[in-house]
Amino acid sequence: MSEAAKKDWRQPIVDYLCYGILPEDPRRRNDIRRRVPHFISYKDTLYRRSFKGVLLRCLGDEERKSSMYYASINGLAEAFNKTLCNLLNKVVTKSKRDWHERMEEALWAYRITYRTLTQATPCSLSFGVEVVLPLEHQIPFLRLNIQEGLIDEENVELRLAELKALDEKRLEAKKNLECYQVQLSRSFNKKVRLRCFQVGDQVLTVRRPIITSHKSRGKFTPKWDGPYAIQEEYLNGAYKLVDTHGVKIGPINGKFLKKLTLNICDAMGKTHLKEREFLQWNLDAKVLQAYN
């Protein structure tokens, strides 16, 4: 037995269900005997019986913390909550106090809506068949007419065929999702301009809250701060800067930097000159007002 299997919490339960093997520790042995009636092993996979009788697949520590099953890692929970809130805003009243009563309607609309990413509905990817809408009972549809003419055995065979094709349908949806992500990435990368710098280059940085070495001086403050020198280069286009006094700043992404040129130096000098002229004019105005 490998070390990963020993650390897996499912392995002792599977050993007892399949081979009748119990651990040597008496407490551990009693604990497994007490928990085993709630589990079932089928095709080398452990399932747990829920309160409603549904079999739930048991996950290991690595699967439970991976992005596929742990939705908070890759943002799936946040993305779904955002979609759910948008649906609730369309069905709730102005007071928005009945949102809990409209939750089922919003979830129903989400499950039967055709998704562009997967080219399918969430319900069809979960159960292998589309939902029967109430409108289909009022207006005769071909799908319902075919199923009504089947006997029980034929209906069971049709349902089994749909379940067998479910894995293939999910793989196709995954392929469509990957293709859509590639297209989205290409359209985004067309607008991206890479800025590459070398160690020792003189650059300017965008005035952002991450640079707290200088205080803001009002609306005449230039948009770019500097000059700085590239001290170190990191991966993914990040750089570490140092100013004329030796103060280190960063790392900062290269999209917030631009190379220092003579034209930029002249523009910065004119900006500071305008600022000094404005301050002098403001001071003269205050002195004249006090004199009057």
Rank of each mutant, 00 (worst) to 15 (best):
A106C: 07
Q198G: 08
G75R: 01
L163N: 13
P12I: 05
D152G: 00
S66H: 01
V156S: 13
I264N: 03
G254V: 00
M268H: 09
L283R: 13
H137T: 05
C179F: 11
N176S: 06
S2T: 07
A79E: 14
Y234A: 05
I13H: 00
T221P: 01
D225Q: 13
K286L: 08
G149W: 15
A285M: 11
T271P: 01
Y16W: 07
Q289I: 14
K175F: 10
M68A: 12
K259L: 10
P209L: 05
E148N: 15
I151Y: 14
F127V: 13
G246Q: 01
I151N: 15
V192W: 06
P209W: 00
E78V: 03
R48L: 11
L88P: 00
E233M: 09
K286Y: 11
D266T: 12
T221V: 10
G250H: 02
L87P: 01
S213R: 06
K174S: 07
Y234T: 03
L87W: 05
I230D: 05
K215L: 10
E232D: 13
P122I: 06
E3N: 08
S124C: 12
F197G: 01
W108D: 07
T83S: 14
L288C: 07
L279S: 08
W281C: 05
A229V: 12
S126R: 11
I252F: 01
R170P: 04
E178C: 05
V192A: 05
S185R: 12
F278R: 15
E178Y: 08
G149T: 13
I211S: 06
N282H: 09
L166P: 02
V242R: 07
K255S: 11
E104W: 04
V156Y: 14
G60M: 02
L171R: 04
R170Q: 14
P122E: 07
S187H: 13
R64Q: 09
G218K: 04
E168N: 10
G128Y: 01
Q181R: 03
